[in-house]
């Protein structure tokens, strides 16, 4: 059986990618299973989707362990443990990461020895309004690695993206073609692995759940603002940066920030709590003096200590 996991953020199209790949497998006569998995978090938050494909009936369900291929829509997810990109990998698991870096650069950056491939995406025209068709690219690249045909990918695109305008469809096809081509040297690199036998699994460490009284065993929270422990900064792909020299301290960015992630430093300048800023960039749009710039997220999501965090009085 082939087992493929896609990791992305809500809104990056990884569910669609999994469905395109699922359909491509299906078109080539495989039994196929694809599904997305979301948590409580919404658009922008890490999510994953998965595909299984086999020549026999698939009985497995649910989350994929020991994936053959892991496709990552956004390299910043690798630094985020809660995204689970590196969870339950087997020795043979191959990573394919959407990134402008070369595989060697990325390995170095991430301090990783595991073999990986990178997929470069076209640069968007406008960061707000034009999003490259990541789903088609990731699915097509994965298909190439899995030895599927371009024809199946194209047909799958039409099945899964039937609601798109002709123009958008053409853009998706073009991106898929080029991603498929990019992976040409690695065609068929991901193969089916022998299944693990039942004897090799450890026995579950079942225990008898102890009884606890209602004060602590009901789903109640005795405390305040514990949500601050959540690093929603990890949702960001673009990061607002305040240029103090252009700032008039008008406070509008702070007023309109839906997350409450902007406060003031000792001089009354706004500063951003990067641990929680989700990167909506309302601040950037509302800033009358254009003192806020969007910079590509570099993975240092919550540098709350020195330097990156602009609040130096915490």
């Amino acid at each position: 059986m082939f087992r493929i996991r896609f990791h992305g953020r809500g809104g990056q199209g990884m569910k669609t990618a999994s469905r395109i790949l699922g359909s491509a497998f299906f078109l080539e006569g495989y039994e196929t299973q694809d599904a997305p998995r979301y948590g409580a978090e919404r658009r922008g938050a890490p999510m994953f989707a998965y595909v299984r494909a086999a020549k026999t009936t698939i009985f497995e369900r649910g989350i994929i362990l020991r994936p053959d291929l892991v496709v990552v829509a956004d390299e910043s997810l690798l630094l985020l443990q809660s995204a689970g990109v590196l969870a339950d990998l087997a020795e043979h698991s191959l990573l394919l990461i959407s990134s402008s870096h070369s595989p060697e650069e990325l390995q170095k950056k991430l301090g990783m020895v595991r073999p990986l491939l990178t997929l470069s995406m076209p640069v968007p025209k406008d960061i707000f309004t034009s999003h490259p068709p990541q789903s088609s690219a990731c699915a097509a690249a994965a298909a190439q690695l899995l030895g599927l045909s371009l024809q199946s990918v194209r047909q799958a695109l039409h099945m899964e993206l039937s609601g798109l305008s002709d123009e958008k469809m053409a853009e998706n096809e073009e991106t898929a073609n080029s991603a498929f081509l990019q992976m040409e040297p690695h065609r068929g690199r991901v193969g089916e692995q022998p299944e693990t036998g039942s004897v090799s699994e450890d026995r579950p460490s079942w225990i008898i759940l102890p009884f606890e009284d209602a004060r602590i065993s009901s789903p109640a929270i005795h405390g305040e603002a514990t949500s601050l422990l959540m690093d929603t900064g990890s949702w960001r792909s673009l990061k607002p940066f305040i240029h103090k020299e252009q700032c008039s301290r008008c406070d509008l960015c702070h007023t309109y920030c839906p997350e409450g992630a902007i406060s003031f430093d000792n001089d009354g300048y706004p500063c951003i709590d990067y641990k929680h800023c989700k990167g909506c960039l309302i601040c950037l749009v509302q800033c009358p003096l254009h003192a806020i710039e969007a910079v590509q997220e570099d993975g240092s999501f919550h540098n709350n200590k020195q330097g990156d965090d602009q609040c130096d009085n915490s």
Partner: peptide
């Protein structure tokens, strides 16, 4: 408190 699961 910040850190809720609402959309960006």
């Amino acid at each position: 408190g910040s850190g809720t699961a609402t959309c960006s």
